[in-house]
Design a protein around this nucleic acid. Structure first.
Length: 477
RNA sequence: CGGGGUGUGGCGCAGUUGGUAGCGCGCCUGGUUUGGGACCAGGAGGCCCAGAGUUCAAGUCUCUGCACUCCGACCA
């Protein structure tokens, strides 16, 4: 595709960070607010989030989850009941200390995550094995006082969903943890056209207070890793800390087993950095708020607007998320604008087309233009959207495969990272010291221990002790 | 929290040796156009980030803040 928009969007090969910022602002996904790290999700950006919400919310409910709403504020004493958890989150909490003109007796934390709120509530309501499992989810925003902030990738306040569940057995809770990871993986692979690496986090990288953390990891276009969704298994640690007990079938008081899992608007940053190019955003059809835009050419010529409206009605009836751009901008302007906004398909209809009983469709992903006979409109558009979805996925998958490399020695890791970046598959002995060494020497962190293991060696990439665990390493966002 | 960058109409920028603010884009009105960011005419819009200095005079010089942004360290 021809290079355009250079005045407006920084070339991604010149400065990927600036490119990203340019795209989110120019495509009207986000606006900066008056407070650092607090971003405005504009209608177009929010619409992407709403589509994700719809997909996930439906899945959650199919799997038996119920939505709830927990308070925004957490009393300090409550936050402190689980030691690892408070150690993990206290450094980035924001506090409410004054109500009206009164200094508060106990300061209140603005939730950075809501585990303790659920625990406190469950300690009161859970009585019997008949009450379990509890499968809860909430859509909300949380606050973490990040030091450096970026649109989508690191907000101080961000929108997410957090699922929290309580089970009678460890097995059931673990199953839930893995099942929800699978739900996230499906969202990424099937809807966002983003291939994922599924796996388990190391001790060092796991969630504060969790016994196990799983994640889906994605590779961005600049070959850095984005942790794209996490699920946690807590065992009965929180239950013990918060004294959540129930009478089991033998009338013994027992501690339930717990999970939590979250996915945030960060995923929108992932879509941008996976599919975007120098012309702006490029959205997978299944998540795009507008899947195709009709551009009438020569709108004053008789019949053009009417024909455009007719195509609009037909495609709408075929459940395509479609809009007609009847504004009085020039066609060229509209082409560039809608490309920047990542609309997967553009449909041009002008006097020449009407004469030939056709329209012209242009793909956002490849720039390719094809003529479509009007009697095949619906089927061709659906085919094209499907094909764009697939080809975006395939392209991202290629990027992931081509930039994942095995390494046997620390030196090899370093040279791969310096030369190519991307993911590195290397064996690991399981020791924290070796993980730290990877970070210090090569600048990479463990992304996850993939479920799909490969034997890329017999010994730890750092200490040479026998190792049978393969870890994926990378530079993370 | 460290290092860099930037603060002048909505956005991007000019602004000379200090003399009281301009350009492009965008926006509004009308008209002509329309197959890759069209053209003409008219118009609206500014406590020059803030505070304190220096000076007859500060967008410009000097301090001190603040904000945003990028890159590191830390985290979804």
């Amino acid at each position: 595709m021809k290079e355009k928009n250079v005045e407006q969007i920084t070339d991604m090969d010149v400065d990927f960070g600036q490119w990203f910022t340019d795209v989110v602002v120019r495509a009207e996904l986000i606006a900066y607010s008056g407070a650092k790290g607090f971003f405005i999700l504009r209608p177009y950006g929010y619409a992407i989030w709403e589509n994700m919400q719809n997909i996930l919310d439906k899945r959650f409910k199919e799997l038996g989850h119920e939505n709830v709403s927990m308070p925004l504020l957490i009393p300090e004493s409550l936050l402190q009941m689980e030691k690892d958890h408070v150690d993990g989150f206290a450094p980035e909490c924001a506090w409410v200390t004054v109500g009206g003109s009164e200094e508060l007796e106990e300061r209140l934390c603005i939730r950075p995550t809501s585990e303790v709120l659920f625990c406190d509530h469950w300690a009161q309501v859970v009585k019997s094995w008949r009450d379990l499992p509890l499968l809860y989810n909430q859509w909300c925003s949380v606050l973490r006082w990040e030091k450096s902030t970026r649109p989508f990738l690191r907000h101080r306040e961000f929108l997410w969903q957090e699922g929290h569940t309580l089970h009678t057995t460890a097995e059931e809770a673990l199953e839930e943890t893995e099942q929800m990871l699978e739900v996230y993986a499906e969202l990424y692979e099937d809807y966002l056209a983003m291939p994922v690496v599924k796996g388990r986090k190391t001790e060092r990288e796991k969630f504060a207070g969790a016994e196990r953390t799983y994640s889906v990891e994605c590779m961005m276009h600049d070959k850095k890793a984005l942790q794209s969704g996490t699920t946690h298994y807590f065992g009965d640690g929180f239950a013990r800390a918060f004294n959540i007990t129930y009478a089991d079938k033998e009338n013994k008081l027992s501690y339930p087993h717990q999970t939590s899992w979250g996915l945030s608007t960060r995923s929108i940053g992932g879509i941008i950095m996976t599919h975007g190019d120098n012309n702006g955003l490029s959205l997978p059809p299944r998540i795009a708020p507008i899947q195709a835009v009709i551009i009438p050419i020569a709108t004053q010529k008789p019949g053009v607007l009417e024909k455009a409206e007719e195509l609009n009605k037909r495609l709408k009836a075929a459940n395509v998320r479609i809009k007609v751009d009847t504004s009085d901008r020039s066609p060229g302007w509209k082409f560039a604008e809608h490309e920047m906004k990542g609309i997967p398909l553009r449909i041009e209809i002008g006097p020449k087309d009407i004469e030939n009983n056709q329209c012209v469709a242009a793909r956002r992903d490849t720039g390719e233009k094809v003529s479509i006979p009007l009697n095949e409109l619906e089927t061709k558009v659906e085919e094209l959207l499907e094909d764009i979805q697939k080809s975006l996925y395939n392209r991202a998958k290629e990027n992931l495969i081509n930039n994942t490399r095995p390494a046997k020695t620390l030196n090899e890791v370093k040279s791969i990272i310096n030369e190519h970046g991307g993911f590195i598959e290397a064996m690991w002995c399981g020791s924290d010291a070796c993980e730290v060494k990877m970070k210090e020497d090569a600048g990479v962190t463990s992304r996850c221990i993939p479920f799909e293991q490969k034997q890329v060696g017999d010994v730890c990439v750092v200490c040479k002790a026998p190792a049978d665990t393969m870890v994926v390493w990378g530079v993370a966002y």
